[in-house]
Computed example of a mutant assay.
Amino acid sequence: MAQSNLYIGLMTGTSLDGIDAVIVDMQDSTPRLIASLGAPLPPQLRAQLLQLQSASHDEIHLAQLAANAHSLACAAVVATLLEKAQLKPNAIMAIGNHGQTIRHRPELGYTLQIGNHALLAEHTGITVVGDFRSRDVAAGGQGAPLVPAFHQAVFASPNQNRIILNIGGIANLSWLGQDQRITGFDSGPGNVLMDLWIHQHRGANYDADGAWAASGQILPDLLADMLTEPFFAQPAPKSTGRDLFHQTWLDQHLVGRNDKAADVQATLCALTANSISQAILSQGTPDEVLVCGGGAHNQQLMHLLTQQLSCPVSSTASVGIHPDWVEAFAFAWLAERCITRASANLPAVTGAQGSRILGAIWPN
């Protein structure tokens, strides 16, 4: 294994919009971003992964093929990233690969992120660390969110109560208290329902800048109906995904309605903002909210959050990390924790019985 302080982090999230990759230098107490790269998922792979979000015929075979394709796509991104950074594979200690979540059922004792880590190691020539969530679930935890420990290491302030808000397909938040209190949990849908609706009506994968949502009117009765979802009132620790917030969930709330498509989009944007705001305020009044993930680019969503929270709301760029790279950065950090045999979960966040070393290693 290479003796290096450089780690690669790879992330494909619930939105299925692409592969985010970073190289991070872990030498100092504050990790430093060396290079970053984003690449869209190949359309066929995205379709395969979407199909696997719900039960279908011959799932084991389809999942293995998708895992292989996912790892080959990641290997290609790693090669391009290394070329961009003018580095050779032997300069990297390990790759932290989140894989793609296709089932998340911690209440049944499992979570599944597919990705052929052995194939990724073979094609990159770099040690791979993957399967980060299973050990926390085995210890009675939710296996999510895992990023609050990273948020604590990188974003905590002794002078402020900060919220780090990741808005991907699903939204999750970390409360970083100046008194060292840390909590974190999934608040509900981030972009996932908005993405589904705009793809259904306009063929786009996402609502750029939230422009379509901004063009519509929020439907108060529909919003109130959606906010009756029991998950929102469930106490932390809690986590969710496409297993709950999917097309059928949305369709059930639209039965018998004939609303304008833009108004539904506006309401879905409000649903994300309201559920996030309620979750944040349940923890206290923060001094600052720092947003990362694709939702940081949704101007309408950011506007609604600013209206509902009596504190500044900005992206993590304001404290030095571009919002597009925070999650990939976190999995580079998690890989380093695994390689150095350091615990990386926060039992107070996930509900696990104790601190655990997360991840499995495929050595090169």
Results as ranks from 00 to 15, higher is better:
Gln247Phe: 06
Pro220Gly: 09
Leu41Cys: 04
Asn345Phe: 13
Ala118Asn: 08
Ala2Gly: 08
Ile102Arg: 03
Ala121Glu: 12
Tyr7Gln: 02
Gln44Ser: 13
Gly354Cys: 13
Ala149Glu: 07
Gln44Gly: 08
Val289Ser: 05
Ile361Trp: 05
Gly169Leu: 01
Ala55Val: 15
Gly9Cys: 09
Ala75Pro: 05
Thr285Pro: 05
Gln51Gly: 11
Gln200Pro: 05
Gly18Tyr: 00
Ile167His: 01
Ile276Leu: 02
Gln307Gly: 02
Thr127Gln: 01
Pro189His: 03
Leu112Pro: 07
Trp362Gln: 07
Asp28Leu: 12
Leu176Cys: 09
Cys338Trp: 06
Gly188Asn: 07
Leu268Ile: 06
Asp195Cys: 04
Gln27Gly: 07
Gln53Trp: 03
Asp324Lys: 03
Leu193Tyr: 07
Ser315Phe: 15
Arg257Cys: 12
Ala348Phe: 05
Leu290Tyr: 11
Pro145Val: 07
Leu72Ala: 09
Met302Asp: 04
Leu81Val: 04
Asn68Thr: 11
Leu223Arg: 05
Ala39Phe: 01
His57Leu: 10
Leu250Asp: 08
Ile92Phe: 11
Gln353Met: 15
Gly256Pro: 09
His70Ile: 03
Phe331Glu: 00
Phe155Glu: 04
Val289Glu: 01
Ser275Thr: 12
Ala208Arg: 15
Ser71Val: 05
Asp263Ala: 09
Gln299Asp: 13
Pro363Met: 12
Ala213Val: 04
Ala118Val: 13
His246Pro: 05
Thr12Tyr: 01
His98Gln: 03
Leu244Glu: 11
Gly216Ile: 03
Asp195Glu: 04
Gln152Ala: 12
Pro363Gln: 15
Asn258Ala: 11
Ser310Asn: 11
Glu59Phe: 10
Ala21Ile: 05
Arg162Asp: 08
Gln283Met: 13
Ala144Ile: 05
Thr248Phe: 13
Asp25Gln: 05
Leu37His: 06
His253Pro: 15
Arg133Glu: 01
Cys338Arg: 06
Cys269Tyr: 03
Ala270Arg: 00
Gly13Gln: 00
Leu49Ala: 01
Ala328Glu: 00
Leu281Pro: 07
Ala330Ser: 15
Ile280Gln: 02
Pro237His: 09
Asp20Arg: 00
Asp58Val: 10
Gly109Gln: 09
Gln27Tyr: 05
Gly141Arg: 04
Arg46Ile: 01
Ile164Val: 14
Trp212Glu: 06
Leu10Asp: 00
Ala85Trp: 01
Thr340Gln: 15
Ala344Asp: 08
Leu196Glu: 08
Gly143Asp: 04
Asp195Trp: 03
Thr272Glu: 01
Ala348Trp: 08
Ser56Leu: 15
Val137Lys: 02
Thr127Cys: 05
Pro43Gln: 14
Arg356Phe: 11
His61Cys: 12
Ser15Glu: 04
Asn159Asp: 14
Gly210Asn: 03
Ala39Lys: 00
Glu59His: 09
Thr248Ile: 12
Asp179Pro: 14
Met226Ser: 10
His297Met: 11
Lys238Trp: 09
